[in-house]
Design a protein around this nucleic acid. Structure first.
Length: 717
DNA sequence: GTGTTGTACATAGGC
DNA sequence: TGTACAACAC
């Protein structure tokens, strides 16, 4: 039995899986069988009686990873994995808070705000405080609040040395109180509350410390400070921490991830020997060598070198296109060719740094009739119709949820306008009440009072009617009673939304199958935490389009990494960030290591971005890949004139310069020129053609000037 | 209350 | 260039 799942492991994997009861750090490279090691470790612990299924906890970052772990465990062990503490940080904290809601001062039916909900609440608070949204953008306040919480700092403990920070803190404080009044928590709050609960309650802490003799953590490089502190609280003197991560794949510093946690862990848990999983089972040698060479350029790595028993395979193909159009065209043609040769579309992926790049690709794929699927974008539970339906459900569970109240009080329209809402909000603020409580105890006068009363009655009756129904029927009834179904039925483009609402009933049905005794609160928490792709995988074979970020953890036979230009990848915004280039390089490392057999790197020297043409230099990352590993498909950009009637490019001042090939009477962008009066300068932009051709020149002494080529006598120099 | 126009904005995105 | 959201008129 045991040999079953231990066979086939390499020596390092085997050593990791069968480690004795002690804390360990596993440095697991891309494609090194990390998930397998993690799940096999759990199976081995349980199978050999070293741990009970309920005496261990496993933490992942995504629900998908948690699900996969549970699925594999179910296949390996003859046990019911239900009830095991396997999940995401947020999911497990939610579980902890539900179980001890009284100890941490939350109502039993507390609701979870997603990012949208949180932003909406922040805006409401800011309006109540009369904070100017121009000078203090709500998004920045949101970031401020979340990063404070991730550092474990409450509003009362914040320090400010300037008026702007003072304003942030004021909003933070009021926001905290408002959340408390409404009985809602945001994502960061789930973690912070769980942390505070354990740090303040010694009995509870010791209970869990004794219970979890093994804690296993996946993707440790992505943990933030608070998550690491929380793990340390849960781990008692007898807990073995089994931590798996890859510092080279840390790509979420921008949202608080702290790679430093790996080094801290190594030190604080006195890890004697780090186990390195360096054998790669995914890619051919050239691809791995390219990745290794690239990442060598980063500083402060823990150090690791991927290798494979497979041969070198094909060279890394590099294609330099003239324009982004040509780049997309090239990719589409190569995809079709590979497809003809027998590679399934689903085994190919085009990766890009930013979402804006997908549009052009989609356009050309559509024109060529190649099926494709774009990842990212609106998730199921983030759709407005779903949010509306869930808001009704939230109100039946918790009347004080102002966000839900505001969302549906006048949707579908009930003649309750902005004036009335303003009055209710003012009254609620004065009385320190929720909107619901306020309009029940001190309703505004006038005709609106009636309409509000109708809404109150609707929610009360709805709650009573569905109280005894099973969850899916609750939602089904609510869709009718609220008028949502009728509304979208009448709407001319409402069909898809109507289908989504039916899908919500299905989702509730499935939820009931999966979670025995799942309550409305459980389902709502599930909806907040699992905003993900709920729709069944589309059966059609389709090319995969996604950002490099969302490709993490995936693999494909053939991968195109496109837009390899300075400013785009590495992204210009990363230049100013601390270790920004380092993180971009890790991102590139992740991109490269997605490919099994064939890797393409493409770039365009001229690209439309936000309606303007930009001229970019080739990405530095291309230079960091050794020549012998690559094959340049077109060393020189094609000088062909097959762009008949092209629009003359317009360039923004300050855009990266590139020697374009367009006819400017012998001049080109980026060229140094001399002018009779203005002296020496550099051409930074061009416009028009023929006699109307103008160039923009940056003269260090005279500034930036537009000059008509036919008049200004420019000299090349 | 709904449809229309106008303006600001545009890295990455898990829970 | 395209979208999202707010302010505006009907």
């Amino acid at each position: 039995m045991r040999d079953d799942f231990l066979s086939g492991l390499n020596p390092e994997q085997l050593a990791a899986v069968t480690l004795p009861h002690e804390s360990a750090l596993i440095l697991a490279g891309a494609g090194s069988g990390k998930t397998r090691v993690l799940t096999t470790r759990i199976a081995w612990l349980v199978d050999s009686g070293l741990a009970s299924p309920f005496g261990l906890m496993a933490v992942t970052f995504t629900n998908k990873a948690a699900r996969e772990m549970l699925t594999r465990l179910t296949a390996m062990l003859p046990i019911n994995t239900r009830g095991m503490w396997v999940g995401t940080f947020h999911g497990l904290c939610n579980r902890l808070l539900r179980a001890h809601h009284r100890e941490c001062g939350l109502p039993a039916a507390f609701q979870i705000l997603d990012m949208q909900d949180q932003l909406a609440l922040i805006k409401r608070v800011m309006r109540a405080l009369n904070v100017d949204e121009e000078r203090t953008p709500p998004r920045q306040v949101q970031q401020f609040i979340n990063s404070q919480k991730e550092s474990g700092i409450r509003a009362s403990a914040c320090e400010s040395y300037d008026p702007q920070t003072r304003r942030y803190i004021d909003v933070y404080g009021e926001y905290e109180q408002q959340c408390q009044r409404e009985g809602v928590v945001d994502f960061a709050e789930l973690l912070l509350r769980a942390y505070e609960l354990l740090s303040r309650n010694a009995m509870l802490r010791e209970h869990y410390q004794q219970r979890f003799r093994h804690i296993l953590v996946d993707e440790f490089q992505d943990t933030n400070r608070l998550q690491y502190q929380w793990l340390k609280l849960l781990g008692g003197p007898d807990t073995a921490m089994f931590v798996v991560g890859d510092d080279d794949q840390s790509i979420y510093a921008f949202r608080g991830a702290n790679v430093g946690n790996m080094r801290d862990f190594e030190r604080e848990f006195r890890i004697g020997k780090v186990i390195r999983l360096e054998q790669n089972y995914r890619s051919f040698g050239n691809i791995l060598d390219a990745a290794n060479a690239l990442i060598e350029n980063n500083e402060g790595r823990l150090g690791k070198q991927l290798w494979t028993a497979a041969g070198p395979g094909e060279p890394v193909r590099v294609f330099e296109a003239l324009t982004d159009q040509d780049e997309a065209h090239f990719i589409v043609e190569e995809v079709r060719q590979l497809h003809r040769e027998g590679t399934a579309l689903a085994d190919m992926a085009v990766l890009y740094r930013s979402n804006a790049q997908s549009r052009l690709l989609e356009h050309q794929l559509f024109a060529a009739g190649v099926p494709y699927r774009v990842y990212g974008g609106l998730r199921f539970f983030e759709r407005q119709e779903i949010k509306h339906a869930l808001a009704y459900l939230r109100l039946t569970a918790n009347r004080d949820d102002d966000g839900a109240w505001l969302r549906v009080v006048n949707f579908p329209a009930r003649g309750i306008g902005a004036r009335t809402l303003e009055a209710v909000q003012v009254a609620a603020r004065e009385g320190g009440l929720s909107l619901w409580a306020s309009c029940c105890s001190r309703p505004p006068g006038g005709a609106a009072a009636n309409k509000l009363a109708v809404f109150v009655r609707l929610i009360d009756e709805l709650s009573a009617e569905i109280a005894e129904l099973p969850l899916p029927e609750k939602i089904d009834a609510l869709l009718d009673r609220s008028g949502l179904r009728d509304y979208y039925r009448a709407e001319k483009d409402g069909e898809e939304r109507l289908e989504n609402l039916e899908e919500l009933v299905n989702a509730a049905q499935n939820f009931q199958y999966e979670v025995e005794g799942g309550t409305v609160e459980d389902f709502l928490a599930h909806a907040s935490l699992e905003s993900g792709e709920l729709q069944a995988e589309v059966a059609q074979d389709a090319l995969q389009l996604m950002t490099v970020h969302s490709a993490k953890g995936l693999e494909f036979d053939a991968v195109w990494v496109c837009g390899l230009e300075e400013g785009l990848f590495p992204h210009e915004n990363s230049l100013s960030a601390h270790d920004g280039i380092g993180e971009e390089r890790r991102l590139m490392y992740v991109a490269i290591t997605r490919a099994r057999k064939r890797l393409y790197l493409t770039l365009a020297t001229q690209r439309q971005l936000y309606g303007q043409t930009r001229y970019n230099l080739a990405s530095r990352f291309l230079r960091e890949i050794p020549e012998p590993l690559t094959q340049w498909l077109n060393r020189r950009p094609p000088s062909s004139a097959n762009h008949g009637g092209y629009a003359a490019p317009r360039v923004q001042t300050g855009a990266a310069v590139y020697a374009g090939t367009q006819d400017l009477q012998g001049f080109r962008i980026g060229q140094s020129v001399k002018h009779g009066r203005f002296g020496q300068g550099v051409i930074v932009a061009a416009e028009g053609s023929g006699d109307d051709a103008r160039v923009q020149v940056n003269f260090p002494e005279a500034g930036v000037k537009w000059l008509l080529l036919s008049y200004a006598r420019l000299e090349a120099c």
